[in-house]
């Protein structure tokens, strides 16, 4: 019985007809306007990254040194940087790196944390103990120090950043997935499935995984913000991605020397970072409230 009810529950989520889904989204937006706004910002960011070459007024790599460090104007809405390049265009192109890094790193992190967390939590015993000791060791190294170290070994292009950040956050958040798995494993229907002779992979995929998805989603939304901040810190310390392609962190880092000369130079990329990180966090908060059944009744 228990088995049926849960599979049915999962099927219900996947199979909800479109109008039903839309109404769910609308209900979420009504109850959590700030979170919905955050979600909207994230969607806009992705769209912006996709259509960057179409909307950017200038190229990202066209220096005009004689026009450098101008404030906002009709020709350059966000002003020009220390090489006379258009700041608005660079922010628009920079969104591409932000999106690639976030999707890549958070995607990898989610895979890693789900794999480690569910396996460790589901099998328990010696498997769990061994895996958890490795996680302990991993977590002992402070994040930024770990990243600096890895980046100085593997270089700082986008792909190595994705791998390094993805592994860092993935192993780190596997604990949360593990606790969620532990909670599910003890439920009657999982034991029933085991008693009925279902294979481990089947139980993991059919019963455990759907139930840890909410936790994974919420963790991922918080990590998006962490990835953006990590990129900017790395840029500041001189371990950022190579030029001239812009990233928001790199733009901030380049603006340091000219902060007094043209303060807006630091304001726009900083605001872009703050807006996106704020949005994903608010979105994640709202999502957690909406997905956490214990909190559901309190609204």
């Amino acid at each position: 019985m228990a088995v049926n009810s849960v599979t049915a529950g999962a099927a219900e989520f996947v199979g909800t007809p479109l109008p039903g889904r839309l109404s769910r989204v609308l209900r979420f937006a009504r109850r959590k306007p700030v979170a919905a706004f955050g979600g909207l910002v994230v969607i806009l960011l992705v769209v912006l990254a996709l259509i960057a070459p179409m909307v950017a007024p200038y190229a990202y790599d066209e220096p005009r040194v004689l026009d450098r460090l101008q404030g906002p104007s009709g020709a350059h809405w966000f002003g020009t940087d220390h090489q006379g390049r258009d700041v608005l265009s660079r922010i628009i192109y920079g969104s591409q790196v932000t999106v690639i890094l976030c999707f890549g790193a958070v995607g990898l992190s989610t895979l890693v944390s789900t794999a480690i967390g569910t396996i460790s939590g589901y099998f328990g015993g010696i498997t769990d103990t061994v895996i958890q000791r490795f996680v302990d060791i991993w977590q002992a190294f402070p994040g930024l120090i770990f990243i600096i170290f890895m980046v100085s070994v593997f270089g700082s292009d986008r792909w190595s950043l994705i791998v390094v950040l993805g592994l860092l956050f993935g192993v780190g958040s596997s604990r949360v997935v593990r606790s969620a798995t532990l909670a599910v494993r003890r439920l009657a229907y999982v034991e029933a499935a085991q008693a009925l002779g279902a294979s481990h992979p089947r139980i993991l995929m059919a019963h455990i995984l759907p139930n840890v998805v909410p936790v994974v989603i919420v963790t991922a939304s918080v990590q998006v913000g962490a990835v953006i901040l990590a990129e900017s810190s790395l840029s500041y310390l001189g371990f950022g991605t190579p030029p001239p392609f812009p990233t928001w962190g790199r733009m901030l880092q380049e603006s340091r020397q000219f902060m007094q000369r043209n303060p807006t130079l630091a304001v726009f990329p900083g605001a872009a970072i703050a807006l996106v990180v704020y949005s994903v966090n608010m979105f994640g908060d709202g999502l957690r409230d909406a997905l956490d059944p214990r909190l559901r009744g309190t609204r």
Binding site: D61, E62, P63, V65, Q83, P242, P243, P244
Partner: peptide, 17 residues
């Protein structure tokens, strides 16, 4: 170095920094 990458792009030399 960054400026040189951008200058050379204009005449068709694509450098990766």
């Amino acid at each position: 170095a960054e400026l040189i990458v951008q200058y050379l792009k204009k005449i068709g030399i694509e450098l990766t920094a």
